[in-house]
């Protein structure tokens, strides 16, 4: 039960607890950042996606003890005013319906576009297929990513 230091959205947190606890539950239940969602607990749906040093990670499959000094970014830390190009594209394309999966979708899209700023449609399909949306906003997600890529160009 050693104390662990976490850097979440540029803020330092000292966390007590078992190091094998998934980061998801530390974010949601301990720190109180509920924008990151629980969807499946098996890394199958992407609702819990956050960034570790800018890379997309499924927080339900990330033991908090494995994070170390890596910078954690959650949807709440993406921007203070929804000004990230991907958030703007999501609003412009009116992507969300129920909205539950969208934190994970946006975090996945941001990490993907950082590595691949000008993706083809097939690359978008491949990168985003680990994130499930049951409302069926997939076509708008595709458009929003293309839009964000164009805006950033």
């Amino acid at each position: 039960m050693a104390g662990m230091n976490l850097l979440v959205n540029s803020k330092k947190y000292e966390i007590d607890g078992a190091p094998e606890t998934p980061l998801l539950w530390v974010l949601r239940d301990t720190i109180g950042l509920t924008g990151t969602k629980f969807g499946c607990g098996m890394g199958l749906c992407g609702a819990c996606t956050v960034h570790l040093d800018g890379d997309a990670a499924r927080s339900c499959q990330t033991p908090v003890g494995s994070v170390g000094a890596k910078k954690i970014t959650t949807i709440e830390g993406l921007s203070t005013d929804r000004s990230h190009p991907v958030q703007k594209a999501w609003i412009a394309e009116q992507v969300p319906q129920c909205g539950y999966c969208q934190s994970g979708q946006i975090m996945q899209a941001v990490a993907f576009l950082t590595k691949n700023p000008h993706p083809t449609r097939d690359e978008i399909d491949q990168a985003m297929s680990g994130n499930i949306c049951r409302c069926g906003t997939y076509q708008r997600i595709r458009r929003a990513i293309q839009q964000a890529a164009t805006d950033a160009a």
Partner: peptide, 21 residues
């Protein structure tokens, strides 16, 4: 017209049942 709930569903602030604290 744009939906009233879109902004809160792009920044993690929309409160679902699971988010009740």
């Amino acid at each position: 017209l744009p939906r009233v709930d879109t902004p809160s569903k792009t920044d993690g602030s929309a409160g679902f049942g699971i988010d009740v604290r």
